Amino acid sequence: MSADPADATNDPMRQTLSRWKAAFDGHRPDEMAELFTSDALFQGFGPETTAGREAVRAYYEAVTEDRWAEVGKVQGYRIGDQVAGGFADVVFRGAEGWTAPVHLSLVLRREGDGWLIRAYHVSRIATDN
């Protein structure tokens, strides 16, 4: 993400990714689930799309604690005051050297004063390794 932390305060995509990364890196599945709308659509590495906060919480509960995410290039958009989203290059890493580079796409919806994830999708990037 950008080196300027002020970017996150005005950009829904950067703001949400900052909170998402902190919860992911800290292995806090309950906090992860709260980043999503109650009816969120979620497509992680699993073969099926799931829906809802409980499915999101269960997914992140199964992620081992030695995993973290590095967020690279972020591109965002806004549609009015209630909808935003975008794409980010993310590399998931594990202590044993495991890596999984992905394109992450999010659709965000404003609820109250903050942004929640309405749709989440990762697309793994094939590497020669």
Rank of each mutant, 00 (worst) to 15 (best):
V102W: 06
G86D: 04
S105E: 06
R110I: 04
R124V: 13
Y59I: 06
T64L: 08
A6I: 07
R78C: 11
G44N: 07
E61D: 12
L104R: 02
V63P: 03
A119I: 02
Q82P: 00
D25R: 00
V91K: 04
S123Q: 06
A23S: 11
F24K: 09
A88W: 02
E31K: 10
A33C: 02
G44F: 08
V83S: 10
W68H: 10
T37A: 08
E34Q: 15
D81E: 14
Q43N: 12
D113Q: 09
E65K: 15
T16Q: 06
I79K: 13
Q82I: 02
G26N: 03
K73P: 01
L108T: 03
D66H: 06
R53D: 07
E96A: 13
P101Q: 07
V102R: 06
Y59R: 06
D7W: 11
A95W: 00
G72K: 07
P101Y: 00
D7F: 06
G86A: 06
P47F: 09
A23F: 10
A88L: 00
I117D: 05
V83I: 13
F87H: 14
N10A: 01
T49F: 05
G97Y: 02
T64R: 15
R124D: 01
A62M: 11
V91R: 10
R93C: 08
A3H: 11
N129G: 15
D81S: 10
V63H: 08
T127N: 06
L35S: 04
R118H: 13
V102Q: 01
D66T: 01
Y77S: 05
S38V: 14
W20T: 03
A100P: 00
I125Q: 02
A62G: 15
L116R: 13
T37S: 13
G52S: 03
A88S: 09
V63I: 14
D66L: 03
P5F: 05
R19Y: 10
R14I: 09
Q43R: 15
E96V: 05
D81Q: 12
E96R: 12
R19M: 11
L41H: 09
R78L: 03
F36L: 00
P47H: 10
T99D: 08
Q43Y: 11
Y59F: 14
V122C: 05
I125G: 07
Q75H: 11
R19N: 11
A40I: 02
R67F: 15
D81K: 12
E61R: 14
T9N: 07
N10V: 13
V122T: 15
L104D: 02
D128T: 10
D39T: 14
T50Q: 15
S38N: 10
I117H: 04
G52N: 08
G46D: 15
T64M: 13
Y60K: 07
F36C: 01
V122Q: 08
R53I: 03
T127W: 06
T99E: 14
V107I: 15
F92K: 04
K73L: 14
A62R: 12
T9L: 15
A51G: 09
W68N: 03
W115N: 07
R67Q: 13
D81F: 05
H27V: 01
T50F: 12
Y120Q: 04
V74P: 07
D25F: 02
